[in-house]
Amino acid sequence: METRRDFLRTAVVAAATATLGEVALGAASKIPSPDRRGILCDLTACIGCRSCEAACRKEHGLSSVSSLSELGRSNVPERRRPSPDALTVVNEYKHPNGAGSPTFVKVQCMHCDYPACESACIVGAISKKESGPVLWDTDKCIGCRYCMVACPFQIPSFQYDTALKPDIVKCDFCVHRTEKGGVPACVEICPVEALTYGRRSALIEIARKRIENYPDRYRDHVYGEFEAGGTSYLYLAKTDFKELEFPSLKREPMPGTSESIQHGIFAYFVPPISLYSLLGGLMWINKNRQKAEEETTE
């Protein structure tokens, strides 16, 4: 008896593990291409000139302000975020003790390897491309803004003031340029080459090498290498990224838990169909019992 019960228990555990394994695979099964591109953003080099902002606006025809001189160098102290008018912004973070030079942080879509927005989108309007970018499809989007809820970096922006066909707006990695072998507009304009566009794996190597060669200049942390499962944008900085208001994220992809649950509930439609049959069975039994009762009372 004892052995039989043990056997049963083992079987149940094995079955459960197999199911869970399958479920977990659901989330992580889409492994991004090893050849995907990224951008390394070296914050120790950035001088906060905001040329990238100007170039981006010009490239995407976003606003009349297209030249650097019009933007000025007055970097704003408040937390500016990308908006429908600017897909990327540069924010200034004062040196902790006030004496040293400030650090400038370029903010834009991180182009996650496992994007929360892609997983969240109700109609699949957001997709991670093989070459790295996370792109938004205007033909599918219904404007529900769940991508904005899901994004851990608070990136997607919405045209709240457009009544008809408002867009979700975010950095598109300048795919129209990179498809033709070019580099994104912000990377091209950067006067100090704080931005480097290339294969993500190569960029990580370079970042690690820089940290090794200049331990005084860089903190030993490539932000985006592992955060939220990895991002296409990678950052190097001298200070702790927390001081620069980068969110502290775990290594697990953002969609992990929710996708596991979703796939668990819908694993080959087994749970819903089982529930359906169970309820059907109950209904049948109860009906028959009542009939029997009625017959006996009669």
């Binding site: 390394l40 080099a45 001088i47 580099v183 990377v187 091209e188 950067c190 006067p191 100090v192 080459e193 931005l195 480097t196 566009y197 290339g198 294969r199 190569a202 960029l203 370079i206 090498k209």
Partner: peptide, 24 residues
């Protein structure tokens, strides 16, 4: 050429190098 356009991503192009040396 800028690093992103050349084969060697590790070091900035001439323009970037000049700007970094001067501006910093």
């Amino acid at each position: 050429e800028t690093s992103s356009k050349s084969a060697d991503l590790s070091k900035p192009g001439l323009k970037g190098a000049y700007h970094r040396q001067c501006i910093n």
